[in-house]
Amino acid sequence: MSNFLKIEREGAVLTVTMDRPEDRNAITDPDQSAEFVALADNLARDRSVRAMVLTGAGKSFCAGGNVKSMRDKTGLFAGSPFDQRTHYRTTVQTIGKALWELEVPVVAAINGHAIGLGLDITLMCDVRVMAEDALVAESYVKLGIIPGGGGAWLLPRVVGLSNASRMTLTGETIDAATALRYGLASEVVPTAQVLPRAQELAHAIAANPGHATRMAKRMMREGMDQKLPTHLEMAAAYQALSHHTEDHVEAIDAFLAKRQPEFRDR
């Protein structure tokens, strides 16, 4: 493995850092994608983790694909068109699938540039805290290519079709104030506060029962493509499950006793 992801834990919250600052945390090595998939698989089994923060080391969140590797036709960009199709399907696209399907809530701490795939990764997160001097871009067309990791599907769902079209078709870079106006950023904070604020939000999420936040996230994700009757059937099933958890009983008892609950993920 490339050891691209540095993982730290505080209580029920993981902080995951893309740790290749010398390359602005660009993603080129297939092992980097495999680490994201392995992380998501582990979190699917570990119900003691209730929230995750994702950020980048150094001055960038993630610069997307490595442009020098594109030029040199190496790594993910080597081989015939059929080879490259396979590379995309088995590497960077697995990041999108893994993060999109992950039920653990994820807060992105956008500490710097999030370009191309880097921006797409932030869109797979649930909440985005952005540094006031950070910049983002869906800049694929400026390199003569198209969003290959899910950005054309994700971006319109986050910022609306008009804003997504402008960003995707011009490839322009937008600042934090614009990202906030578009609804891409949930909050904009001074650079030094971006990781602490993201962790604060993650701990606020983790203060709630893990089964409730995971199922609520799943409902929102599925609801984006469901009709209301189908969604309500899912809600009824999930609500019934929730009512039969020990954490639900503890939440009710704590509320009535005016004390802090102690959840055990049961």
Rank of each mutant, 00 (worst) to 15 (best):
D83V: 09
G210T: 10
G148C: 10
V92M: 10
A198Q: 06
Q226I: 00
R218S: 09
G171V: 08
S139K: 00
T213G: 03
S162D: 15
W153P: 00
V13M: 04
A114K: 07
L154N: 09
A254I: 03
I146F: 14
E138S: 15
G150D: 09
K59G: 13
G79E: 09
G223K: 07
L184M: 12
A108M: 01
F82I: 05
S242R: 07
A240D: 14
A109K: 06
G148Y: 13
G58N: 05
R45L: 10
L123N: 07
H248W: 11
E10A: 11
E200A: 13
T173R: 12
H211R: 12
G149N: 12
A176I: 02
A26F: 00
D253Q: 15
R20T: 15
K73M: 11
K258G: 08
D23K: 13
L123W: 06
K258I: 07
I205C: 04
G75E: 07
A251G: 12
G118T: 05
G144K: 07
T230C: 01
E103T: 07
G11K: 08
M130I: 11
G75A: 10
V129G: 06
G116Y: 08
I146T: 13
D126K: 05
A51F: 04
E200R: 11
W100Y: 10
A57W: 05
T245Y: 01
K6R: 14
R166G: 01
Q239E: 14
G65A: 14
S33G: 15
A235V: 14
V53L: 09
P81K: 06
V158K: 15
E138K: 05
Q239V: 11
G148L: 14
V92Q: 04
V194F: 08
A57I: 01
D265W: 04
P30D: 08
T230R: 13
N25W: 04
D41R: 13
G160V: 04
R157V: 02
A198G: 03
S162Y: 04
V136H: 02
H203V: 01
T94E: 13
R20V: 05
A152E: 12
N25H: 03
I146C: 02
P229M: 13
T74L: 03
E172P: 02
A179N: 02
L102M: 15
S48M: 01
L180P: 00
M18R: 15
